[in-house]
């Protein structure tokens, strides 16, 4: 009985300890964001890496998702003569949910993995120790610019993804579903409210923070050797993805059910 309770309690305690460690790590990063020195060059490089170079993958994800969404809504809506809702549902679905969530997951795969691998390699090759001996706080130099860049870049990526996703729906609508182009666009604009877009952008910022936080946390806590870096990379992507989905549910509850 005691052994069974122990087996049950140990992972729970480990999970709680891990949550505590991540919370302290996030707190340390937030506390450093507004305090000098500011590494603007590193922030610029991170914005380029995380924002600009993620545009293709976010754009491609969005256009195919928007197109598939239009086909699904048309097929589902035709069961009760509601085909006309395709433009508005595509727009709302992309802006509120699919744009930020799928964009966040794609960026998690691309960015959390690369941050964890880069910082993890720096750790095992003693570059992080070298930073300390050169009077540079590794958290401030490596983690803060990446977390800030991801938090700032992700809403922009979501906005671009929303626009491309809606365009994907429009393209499928006018070429495959016989919608009139002007009517489709008018329907989209008429039904889309500012908060539909705003909520998605807020979600994007939160997801960007999560992605970079997980990449930095697992990179900084990477174990020795290639296996350690590999494990850190995998953990960063998995934890970022799960946290994005969990945060999405919490934010949706917060934004749309009260």
């Amino acid at each position: 009985m005691t052994a069974a309770l122990g087996a049950l309690g140990r992972p729970v305690l480990e999970a709680l300890a891990a949550i505590g460690r991540v919370a302290l790590f996030a707190g340390a990063i937030l506390s450093h964001i507004l305090r000098p020195p500011f590494y603007l060059r590193e922030l610029g490089a991170s914005l380029l890496q995380i924002g600009w170079f993620s545009l293709p993958v976010v754009g491609l994800t969005a256009i195919f998702t928007g197109g598939a969404l239009a086909l699904q809504i048309y097929a589902g809506g035709s069961r009760f003569n509601a085909e006309a809702v395709v433009p508005s549902i595509v727009a709302i679905g992309m802006a509120r949910e699919l744009g930020p969530v799928l964009g966040g997951l794609m960026v998690a795969a691309r960015v959390a993995s690369s941050i964890a691998a880069e910082i993890g390699t720096m750790k095992v090759t003693e570059q992080i120790d070298a930073l300390v001996t050169l009077s540079t706080n590794p958290l401030k130099y490596l983690a803060v610019p990446r977390v800030l860049a991801a938090t700032l870049a992700m809403p922009v990526l979501v906005a671009v993804g929303d626009a491309i996703g809606i365009m994907g729906g429009w393209l499928v609508g006018i070429t495959r579903l016989d919608f009139n182009s002007a009517a489709y666009l008018k329907n989209t604009v008429d039904f889309l409210e500012p908060w539909d877009i705003g909520s998605g952008l807020v979600k994007g910022a939160v997801f960007g923070f999560i992605v970079a936080l997980m990449g930095c946390y697992h990179g900084m806590h990477s174990a020795r050797g290639a296996q350690g870096v590999g494990r850190a990379t995998k953990s960063a992507v998995v934890s970022a993805s799960v946290l994005i989905l969990a945060a999405n549910y919490v934010l949706t509850e917060l934004f749309f059910t009260s």
Partner: peptide
């Protein structure tokens, strides 16, 4: 100043 075993260059 410190010289690391593997160089630890950035």
């Amino acid at each position: 100043g410190m010289l690391f075993q593997g160089g630890a260059l950035f």
